[in-house]
Simulated scan of single mutants.
Amino acid sequence: MKILVTGTAGFVGFYTAVKLLELGHEVVGLDSINDYYDVNLKFGRLAESGIARDDVAYGELVQSAKYSKYCFMQLQLEDKAMLDSLFADERFDAVCNLAAQAGVRYSLQNPHAYIDSNVVGFMNILEACRHNGVKNLSFASSSSVYGLNETMPFSTSHNVDHPISLYAATKKSNELMAHTYAHLYGMQCTGLRFFTVYGPWGRPDMAPFLFTKAAFAGDTIKVFNHGKMKRDFTYIDDIVEGVVRVILNPCAANPEWSGANPDSSSSSAPYKIYNIGNSNTVELLEFIEAVEAAAGVEIQKEFLPIQPGDVVATYADVSDLERDMDYAPSTTVQEGMRRTVAWYREFYGV
Rank of each mutant, 00 (worst) to 15 (best):
I3T: 14
A9I: 04
F11V: 03
F11S: 01
E22Y: 13
E22C: 07
H25K: 00
E26C: 07
V27E: 07
D38I: 02
L41D: 05
R53D: 02
A57P: 02
E60C: 10
K69H: 11
K69A: 15
M73I: 15
E78K: 04
A88I: 03
R91L: 00
D93M: 01
Q101C: 08
M123A: 04
L126Y: 09
N132D: 02
N132F: 13
T151C: 08
S155I: 01
H158A: 03
V160Q: 06
S165H: 11
T170N: 12
S173G: 10
N174P: 01
E175G: 01
H183Y: 09
Y185W: 15
Q188K: 15
L192Q: 10
F195V: 10
M206H: 03
K213F: 10
A214D: 04
A217T: 13
I221T: 12
K222L: 07
H226V: 06
D232V: 10
D238P: 05
V243W: 01
V244S: 07
V246E: 01
C251G: 10
S258L: 06
S264I: 15
S266P: 07
I273D: 04
G277L: 01
N280P: 05
V282K: 02
L284T: 09
E286Y: 10
E289S: 15
E292F: 04
V297Q: 14
I299Q: 02
I299A: 03
A313S: 13
A316F: 12
D317C: 00
S319L: 10
A328V: 04
V333I: 15
V350T: 07
